[in-house]
Nucleic acid binder design. Structure first.
Length: 234
DNA sequence: CCCTGATTCGC
DNA sequence: GCGAATCAGG
């Protein structure tokens, strides 16, 4: 796969939105998480809470590579297990879910609904990135004035008028319909955002589009337009 | 083991 | 420019 403008755009958004490299790689498809990280750095966007670089030691990082030692066997895309523990996923991608924290809205029964992140325990010194990229700091860190009441709903700092109120890539979660509205790359591209049909990535309406029952011959309706690539659906 | 991002360096 | 290999922390 090649890095088209679209794929780069998705990478940028997701990276800045706090998605992990693995998630981005999975979303894009055809690339490894290493490719995503490499590309992200080449694009100039980096500086993310890295488990390795969190503290500054005398040792920068990867010291060396034994030169002509390991003969790299060809690119065998490692089976990146897509599975992740909910805990890790939530910690690594805090920006994805909270935007639509509407409890009542189609709350899927199998959704444990993670409570708020550990408020202020005796955690040593964690620094994580919250929605929007601000840094959360442990209680032991220097700040004097605790910020006033945090907003209950996080809203994009500068929502472009076209996307205002729409469900963007960063608003996606397992609770909202991921049916794309419009075409990627367009300024008003967004997602359906309705509560999902529990167990499906789409709302009930779009499940109807995505999953067509096999009808008897002759009775079949003409196929609906595809989410991507097809004519506009709105 | 699993995961994470950072870095190197052959291609 | 790309990304596998590798590193190092959690």
């Amino acid at each position: 796969m090649s890095w088209t403008d679209e794929r780069i755009g998705t990478l940028r958004k997701m990276w800045e939105g706090g998605s992990t490299a693995s998630e981005i790689a999975t979303e894009l498809g055809g690339v490894s998480r290493n490719a995503v990280i490499g590309k992200a750095h080449r694009l100039g966007l980096k500086a993310r809470p890295s488990p390795v670089k969190a503290n500054d030691k005398k040792k920068p990082a990867a010291p060396r590579k034994p030169a002509a030692a390991a003969p790299r066997p060809a690119a065998e895309p490692r089976a990146e297990t897509a599975g992740r523990t909910p805990e890790r996923a939530a910690a690594a991608r805090p920006a994805a879910a909270p935007a639509r924290s509407d409890d009542s809205a189609g709350a899927s029964p199998a959704s444990p609904s993670q409570p708020m992140p550990n408020p202020a325990s005796d955690l040593p010194k964690i620094v994580s990135v919250g929605p929007g990229g601000f840094l959360r700091q442990g209680p032991g860190d220097q700040q004097a004035p605790i910020p006033p009441a945090p907003p209950r709903r996080l809203v994009p700092a500068k929502p472009s008028p076209e996307i205002a109120g729409k469900t963007t890539l960063l608003d996606l979660s397992e609770k909202v319909c991921r049916w794309p509205m419009g075409h990627p790359g367009e300024p008003d591209f967004h997602f359906c955002g309705q509560p999902v049909n529990p167990g499906f990535p789409y709302c009930v309406e779009h499940c109807g589009r995505a999953y067509q029952a096999q009808l008897p011959r002759g009775v079949r309706r003409p196929p609906p337009p595809l989410p991507f690539g097809g004519p506009r659906v709105r």
